[in-house]
Amino acid sequence: MDNNNIIEVKDLRINIKIDEGTLTAVRGVNFEIRKGETLGLVGESGCGKSLTSKAILGINEKKCKAEGEIWFEADELGRVDLLTLNPRGKEIRSVRGKQISMIFQEPMVAFSPMYTIGNQINEATLLHITKDKKKAKEISLEVMRKVGIANAEKRYDQYPHEFSGGMLQRALIAMALVCNPKLLIADEPTTALDVTIQAQILELMKSLQKDFGMSILFITHDLGTVARMCDRVAVMYLGKIVESAPAVEIYKNPQHPYTQGLIGSVHKIGTKNQERLFSIEGTVPLALNLPAGCGFYDRCHKRIEGVCNVYDPSLVDIGEDHKIACFACTGCPNAPKNQEVTDK
């Protein structure tokens, strides 16, 4: 493991048992996050983004079976593969919520309506930092002020329904940051918010990242927020990363047809109105009994018959820090050496 990396995910596979069979929701995902950087994980709903992030914390449902390796530089445990830890054990609990924490999608749902905000932020503090309730309250109040909650003392004793959406998202961020994590996983943190509030929250996260020196895994389907937040971007499709590159590169020079489609289907204000938006035909298929070959084959406008529906492309370097899994772009080897032939 590279010393600059805070986490390395290697060949992560997640299978879900459902009535109709086994869903291969994540199919061999590799990525790493460097210290202090923000990695954007982009893709449409159902592509496995959330499952991947939850696998890091070991909070997926029981029916989801994860294989592979997730190496993390933990404080007490040293270098550890998080997947080998018992998801209900003591070790993962010393990591979860403390060294790696998560901001969930909908702030209204993420909080329990039965407890005060202060009470819920305290939970992590009391578990990980101090047993002293007074001290815990002080710590919580400090974090609440840091995330820009005015009148923190009064807000501390209020219930979630007394907060607006933007304020609640701030409280959620406070809860995630209270233990000073090394890695913050933000799962669509601003999707439910208005543009003005969204801009506030993104700026807040950026400035907090500087203060706390943490890394962020930023999960979203919104390419606009990614452009604003991320250093590097990994694009996921049907349980696989199909392209990864620095953010500037991916917007300037997208290579994979799926990435191009995603970027093309978002209209940029100020550009001349083209007659039609570029759109990717069809929808994301269900990851059940997937055919051989590239998962994007059916929707791809660059597909090569006889290659793309036979072999499954793997990530190949095509430039500085720019990787892509596509035969149409990297050339199609007739007898691929390092691609496994998935014939059945």
């Binding site: 919104d222 927020t225 917007y251 940029k268 204000i269």
Partner: peptide, 17 residues
Amino acid sequence: SLLSAVPVADPTVQNER
């Protein structure tokens, strides 16, 4: 201010909010 808050899908554009 509404316009300045719009996230633009281009990292080279850093409009001041």
